[in-house]
């Protein structure tokens, strides 16, 4: 009887997934910004904004996989920076082919991620502590290698990967982000490994009883998180044309925030890649709006925090009223 009394519009909103709700807020936000500042919807801004969003969103993809298992990866910032430095070192100092350099670094990143997984699954250490420690090591390695100096001289054939744009509007990193998203969505939805990730995060013990090799799944997820962070670190390095030691240093919180406001649960088992794209775009649009609207730099963090809090609160309100 109660169902019959619920307003259909309210039913639509309460049944809408978190990512859908944030997406609706995002559309309204973009429309308002477009009206207030037509520059927001200019070709140049869409191109540069989408490229800026792509890096952190790629990191958020890996973070999402880790969060789905109930873990967290705080080493993504160090891994991204280290990947950018090593790929440049291989190209500039060793003289390797750019694509071979990237392949070597991605394999190394995967192994670095597996190291996180080893400590978490075999040594039974807490993911927060393990990845905090390895992140610190990765950041330390950056400074050992660079002594704080940027590395210059990346060949043009490589920088084109980071700086290239299709039809003056779609940057290569955005194409890469979409491809990566497609692969990960397919993996999560249509492969046994993807279902095992949800199972491990939903109920670890039930997953073990069901015969899922939880340690292997968890380790692989940390490996993939390291790879997505490395891809982002390499792409921003190629975009800048120099390997900066500070690359990605502030990417941990945005990666977690993008995943969370996209509907991924911090306790695991719920969420997905599409939501993280929505979350990443949402965060990027807010940052861009602050610049375009010339919000006082002293208020910048207050505005970002408030908007994110309101967006999540709307979603929680919806969940409570369900």
């Amino acid at each position: 009887m109660n169902c019959e009394t619920i307003n259909p519009r309210k039913r639509f909103l309460t049944n809408l997934p978190t990512a859908g709700m944030i997406f609706m807020i995002l559309v309204v936000l973009c429309a308002v910004l477009g009206i207030m500042k037509p520059a927001f919807v200019s070709q140049y801004n869409i191109m540069s904004l989408s490229r800026s969003i792509s890096y952190k969103t790629m990191v958020a993809f890996g973070q999402t996989l880790v969060l789905l298992t109930g873990g967290i990866d705080l080493s993504v910032a160090g891994m991204a920076g280290m990947a950018g430095i090593f790929v440049t070192t291989l190209m500039v100092d060793v003289g390797l082919n750019p694509y071979l350099s990237i392949a070597i670094v991605l394999v190394g990143a995967f192994l670095g991620g597996l190291l996180n997984g080893f400590f978490i699954t075999k040594m039974k250490m807490v993911p927060f502590v393990v990845t905090l420690a390895t992140g610190s090591i990765f950041t330390g390695v950056i400074y050992v290698v660079t002594k704080g100096s940027p590395i210059m001289g990346i060949p043009e054939s490589a920088t084109r990967l980071g700086q290239g744009v299709i039809s003056n509007i779609i940057p290569y990193p955005v194409v890469l982000m979409v491809l990566l998203a497609a692969v990960l969505v397919y993996m999560l939805r249509f492969t046994p490994f993807g279902r095992h990730i949800y199972a491990v995060g939903g109920n670890l013990y039930a997953a073990e009883i069901a015969g899922i090799k939880t340690a292997k799944v968890t380790s692989m997820v940390y490996g993939l998180s390291a790879v997505t962070a490395a891809v982002a670190g390499i792409m921003i390095t190629l975009r800048l044309g120099t390997a900066q030691p500070t690359i990605g240093a502030d990417w941990v919180m945005p990666s977690v925030t993008a995943a969370c406001i996209g509907g991924t649960s911090l306790s695991g088992g719920r969420g997905g890649i599409i939501g993280s794209i929505v979350g990443g775009v949402f965060m990027g649009v807010i940052s861009n709006a602050i610049v375009i609207l010339n919000v006082s730099p002293y208020w910048e963090n207050v505005v970002i925090g408030t908007v994110v809090l309101v967006a999540i609160a709307i979603d929680r309100f919806k969940a409570i009223s369900r």
């Binding site: 500042k37 140049y44 904004l49 500070t246 602050i290 610049v291 375009i292 010339n294 730099p297 910048e300």
Partner: peptide, 26 residues
Amino acid sequence: IVAEQADNDSVETALDVMEGWISAYP
């Protein structure tokens, strides 16, 4: 002076802010 933003000593942030300004202030 049409705009003032912090870049937190980050090349990446400065790049993002500058791209925003190029759009907003032709």
